[in-house]
């Protein structure tokens, strides 16, 4: 029973990491309407940049994390402007857009390995002994991860509900033609969406690295389909759905380790993904007005 409760706590941490990542992917998908298969590589960009800033350049860790987050956003925006948007403007079919992002993932993953090698890294932060809160037990880092995720989710909520940019993003997500004809600067909004999506990926990568403590450049790579699972669970392009999806996937995968070997926890995410695709491909919260 104690292990079960402990795993609920870990589930909360994993859900926090996933929530950043799935919301980032979902926002971008909603606006651009294609899946970015290079998204998993942005995690690596974020975690490694934060490492460089903190370990090599000796910035305080919080500043390194902030810089890593923002730089990943910039990388995402530059890639979108420099590569993806030109392809989209040429009206390349969905097939080709997907292959291009898939190709980008290979390029980015390998560039990261060229720069950083295959060693294991660790952020220069003190490892604290776990704190017990009720039945749960967290390290300081894990508590910070949860806090960061909560703040980020509130931030995304405020962005979408209070700001002009957020409202424009929602409008484009619901109906691109309508958004364009009602005078939204869709190009600009798309650019910002890529930036925000990249920031969330970078931040997600950094907190993932904090959570697993010792990481490699490609530690985020296999997480891609777990993120997809969360996004599809919530209904693709649905931001709040993605948060819910992250919570469910995070909890289910961690709780499953009470019963099976933790080597297989990703398989649980795969099973959820498959079940969703077979039974309810529109997600738990289907998009409005889509037939």
């Amino acid at each position: 029973m104690t292990i079960f409760l402990l795993n609920i706590g870990f589930g909360l941490v994993t859900a926090s990491v996933l929530s950043l990542l799935s919301v980032g992917l979902s926002l971008q998908f909603g606006v651009t309407n294609f899946v970015n298969f290079a998204y998993g590589s942005y995690l690596g960009v974020g975690m490694m940049l934060a490492y460089t800033f903190s370990a090599t350049l000796h910035f305080p860790f919080w500043a390194a994390a902030a810089l890593g987050t923002i730089f990943t956003g910039v990388v995402s925006m530059v890639i979108a402007e420099g590569v993806l948007e030109p392809f989209a403007r040429r009206r390349k079919s969905l097939f080709y857009m997907l292959i291009v992002t898939f190709g980008l993932s290979l390029v980015l993953d390998n560039l990261l390995q060229i720069f950083y090698g295959v060693d294991f890294f660790q952020y220069p932060v003190a490892q604290s002994s776990p704190v017990t809160i009720g039945p749960f037990s967290f390290t300081n880092a894990q508590l910070e991860i949860i806090a960061i995720a909560v703040v980020a989710m509130v931030g995304v909520h405020l962005l979408l509900s209070r700001t002009r940019l957020g409202k424009a993003m929602r409008a484009m997500s619901d109906n691109m033609d309508l958004a364009r004809s009602s005078g939204i600067d869709t190009k600009n909004v798309t650019r910002w969406t890529w930036f925000i999506s990249g920031c969330l990926a970078g931040l997600g990568g950094i907190v993932l690295a904090l959570n697993i403590v010792s990481f490699q450049t490609n530690s985020g790579e296999t997480l891609l389909f777990v993120i997809f699972a969360a996004v599809i669970l919530g209904g693709i392009g649905q931001t709040y759905g993605a948060m819910l999806g992250a919570l469910v996937i995070g909890m289910v995968t961690e709780i499953s380790t009470s019963f099976i070997s933790s080597a297989y926890k990703q398989d649980i995410a795969f099973i959820v993904l498959v079940l969703m695709l077979l039974l309810r491909p529109q997600g738990l919260i289907p998009a409005k007005g889509k037939a």
């Binding site: 590569v83 291009v100 980008l104 290979l106 390029v107």
Partner: peptide, 8 residues
């Protein structure tokens, strides 16, 4: 990197 670039 080259193979990925080649695809793109």
């Amino acid at each position: 990197v080259i193979i990925g670039g080649l695809v793109i």
